[in-house]
Amino acid sequence: MTARREVRVTVNGRAYARNVEPRMLLVDFLRHECGLTGTHVGCAHGVCGACTIVLDGVSVRSCLTFAVQAEGKEITTVEGLADGESLTALQQAFHENHALQCGYCTPGFLMSLTEFLRETPNPDEGQIRERLSGNLCRCTGYANIVSAVQMAAQRLREKGGVS
């Protein structure tokens, strides 16, 4: 065991301070120290994308980041996407298109795609599939996720805003 360090982060707008070992992965910190279990561990080696969060404005794998590296930073997790019972345009499109089955990979997809739609408001199917290829889903076969992204992109363009 090595000396613990204080980690202070803001997650979904709320401040957290915990003393943790440097080796603690950020995903474990979020799940077990902050109680935000919406971020999932699918592989812990950076391939599946289930642990994707937004760290200081960009999507990252929280299984490949140590909690101490997030000291002083702002984090958004799936719990922070929508207010209360409501859904973002992307979440709503996932719902309507049946873009999730077991739902385990879904938070990672949502975090990666929220960034994607901000950067690429009018994506074609190729761009969508290229982006999706960084997250693995074993249930859906992806087709409905592609449709959901197309629907969300269109609605966001019509609204002229991002989620």
Partner: peptide
């Protein structure tokens, strides 16, 4: 979907 999309599912490690 409504709970799973908001990160409110409860899987075994949750």
């Amino acid at each position: 979907d409504l709970r799973l999309l908001r990160g409110m599912g409860t899987y075994i490690d949750d």
